[in-house]
């Protein structure tokens, strides 16, 4: 498994009135082709900041150090213009809340095709065709008609399918899914996870799957990174981390997952 994506000693710092605060500290990990890395941790552990830092989407004032390489190309320190060519094209992102992450003023077709046109060019008609095919691939029924619908006309699960269709329309090398199932109910969650796994196996896209839900990670990731307050706490294969956790915090997280054979408290 060759390493597609290498993050080395990544640190993200925010200036505050009480001095600089490190929200991600000395983070290192790799993602191979076809590989899924699960990043897990509580809210505020720096998971999402890591994803945003990779794409240069951090809020104004944030500073990054270290190295982020995709296929050997360094991304940290690239100009905004160069990063735009990477975003959505080589590295795509799926966000947590699909309703607020899609623009309510435009049809899903336009939102997919504008991204395709930006990176691949071509006519509006061709881009719309790509959008229809992308919707079909993620299992949206009647895509020719649905392509002209607005986000609020889709169910929660379908919206997330639209987000995934959009993220994959330019065939990226790496997909970052930031809590993509958190806003969905459990049955829809399972469908989305299944879809992501299936698409990954057909496209060969590397994936970073960010979640606070260990159960989700265990079903999808080959490697796991546990984060706490910006620190990488534990990093290893999913099997290692789940069967033989080395760090007290990981054990605590694993113990917090309710199990079906748990005794009911009196």
């Amino acid at each position: 498994m060759s390493d597609l994506f290498i993050v080395d000693d990544l640190t993200v710092t925010f200036p505050t009135s009480r001095g600089p605060v490190e929200v991600v500290k000395n983070l290192s990990f790799t993602v191979g082709r076809d590989d899924t890395l699960g990043i897990v941790g509580e809210s505020g552990s720096g998971k999402s900041m890591t994803a945003l830092a990779v794409l240069g989407l951090l809020p104004r004032g944030a500073q990054t150090s270290g190295s982020v390489r995709l296929d050997g190309t360094e991304l940290l320190g690239k100009s905004e213009r160069d990063l735009r060519a990477v975003r959505g094209n080589a590295i795509s992102m799926v966000f947590q809340d699909p309703l607020s992450s899609l623009n309510p003023y435009y049809t899903v077709g336009l939102q997919i095709s504008e991204m395709y046109q930006t990176h691949q060019g071509g006519s509006r008609r061709a881009a719309k065709q790509v959008a229809i095919e992308a919707l079909e691939r993620v299992g949206i029924p009647d895509p020719e008609r649905r392509v002209d619908h607005y986000p609020h006309q889709f169910s929660g699960g379908q919206r997330q399918r639209v987000m995934i269709a959009m993220a994959l329309c330019c065939s990226p090398s790496l997909l970052i899914a930031d809590e993509p199932t958190t806003a969905l109910d459990v049955t829809v969650q399972a469908q989305i996870l299944e879809l992501l796994a299936e698409l990954q196996s057909t496209t060969g896209t590397g994936m970073i799957f960010i979640t606070h839900d260990l159960a989700v990670i265990s079903s999808i990731a080959q490697r796991v990174l546990v984060m706490r307050e910006g620190d990488p706490v534990e990093y290893g294969t999913a099997e290692q981390v789940f069967s033989d956790p080395q760090h007290e915090y990981t054990r605590m997280l694993l113990d917090a997952v309710p199990r079906i054979d748990d005794e009911v408290p009196a």
Binding site: L55, L57, L83, R84, A85, V86, R87, G88, N89, S92, M93, F95, S101, L102, N103, E114, M115, T118, H119, M163, M166
Partner: peptide, 8 residues
């Protein structure tokens, strides 16, 4: 944020 992440 999505629009930025799309590289538009």
């Amino acid at each position: 944020r999505t629009a930025r992440a799309k590289g538009l």
